[in-house]
């Protein structure tokens, strides 16, 4: 459904997206996982033609997007990161406008509007002005406006940022339902749990580059049967580098001023590791342990946690 080849974009000489390639199959939810500033939104903006790539090609349904944009855009639904709606008119009027923009009209549009208002639990306040809605309601309407025309490919740019857990669950359920109805979804997020629960396949992106991609199982295999131990406190670089020598298979992943990350096979207990730290003169201020997960994959690949 979507194919991106060697896509890159730079702003003021700084690469925001660095020659990335990936493919999203019809009907799947493809996750784009990465921290803020990783290049997720820039990639989405290039796919939906808001930004012109410096290089690379984008294919939607096998058609290269730059030449035949208007026709292809009807196949595309976009839900931007920030709520992009008209606050001074009602939810119904908003949906009517976005539907008409994609060529819908008459009873077909009216029926679809009712359907969506009901689906997103907004039917009782359909005629209220959007400015009187809560943050969660606006997010739901934002999503509804993106799928009013039943797009074949839906680009969701962090649709759950800044909302309460209940509203977030509502949106995630809706996304699953939209995918079940046959829409292909590209879902960007920096929430590990969302990617784990929602996506069939995903790509981990950081500093504009795709670090790895594939199914969750294949990605988690990168870290194998290892847990990640992040120690912060007072220590010397020499001590930190020497420590793995004391425990077989302990691997130093990253070393910063007051923080060091190790990878330790599951067969070793953490007690032995802490004992070794004390022996080596570490003054431990904080120790966090990550079991094998997407988060630990991110640590393995970047040396830092996703939320850092």
């Amino acid at each position: 459904m979507l194919k991106v080849e060697n896509l890159s974009k730079s702003f003021n000489g700084k690469l925001a997206v660095d020659h990335i390639s990936f493919q999203v199959e019809k009907g799947e939810i493809f996750g784009f996982l990465g921290p803020n500033g990783a290049g997720k939104s820039t990639t989405i903006n290039m796919i939906c033609s808001l930004l012109k790539p410096d290089s690379g090609l984008i294919f939607i349904d096998g058609i290269e997007t730059s030449s035949t944009r208007p026709q292809l855009r009807k196949k595309l639904g976009v839900v931007p990161q920030d709520v992009a709606l008209y606050y001074e008119i009602s939810a119904e009027e908003n949906l009517r406008f976005w539907g008409e923009l994609y060529g819908m009209k008459g009873s077909q549009l009216g029926k679809r509007i009712k359907e969506l208002l009901l689906f997103f639990g907004l039917d009782e306040r359909a005629r209220d002005k959007v400015k009187n809605y809560s943050g969660g309601m606006r997010r739901r309407l934002n999503l509804a406006a993106g799928i009013i025309h039943q797009p074949e490919l839906l680009l969701l740019d962090e649709p759950t940022v800044g909302i309460d857990p209940q509203a977030r669950h509502h949106i995630l359920d809706a996304v699953k339902q939209i995918a079940k109805d046959g829409t292909t979804i590209l879902y960007t997020t920096h929430y590990m749990d969302e990617a784990e629960n929602l996506c069939d396949r995903l790509a981990i992106i950081d500093h504009g580059r795709i670090l790895t991609s594939g199914s969750q199982e294949s990605i988690t295999k990168i870290v194998g049967e290892n847990r990640f131990l992040k120690v912060s406190g007072q220590f010397t670089a020499e001590n930190a580098e020497r420590l793995p020598g004391d425990i077989k298979e302990l691997t130093l992943i990253s070393l910063q001023d007051k923080e060091v990350v190790y990878s330790l096979p599951m067969k070793y207990g953490t007690g032995e590791f802490i004992e070794n730290l004390n022996k080596s003169g570490f003054i431990i201020e904080n120790l966090s342990i990550k079991e094998p997960s997407l988060d630990s994959v991110f640590i393995k690949l970047t040396g830092r946690e996703l939320r850092d």
Binding site: R73, L76, V78, P80, L85, Y86, Y102
Partner: peptide, 14 residues
């Protein structure tokens, strides 16, 4: 500023 312009331009509008 409200990003509705950008959203409109992702649709079939020039």
């Amino acid at each position: 500023e409200n990003l509705t312009l950008q959203r409109i331009l992702t649709g079939p509008v020039s």
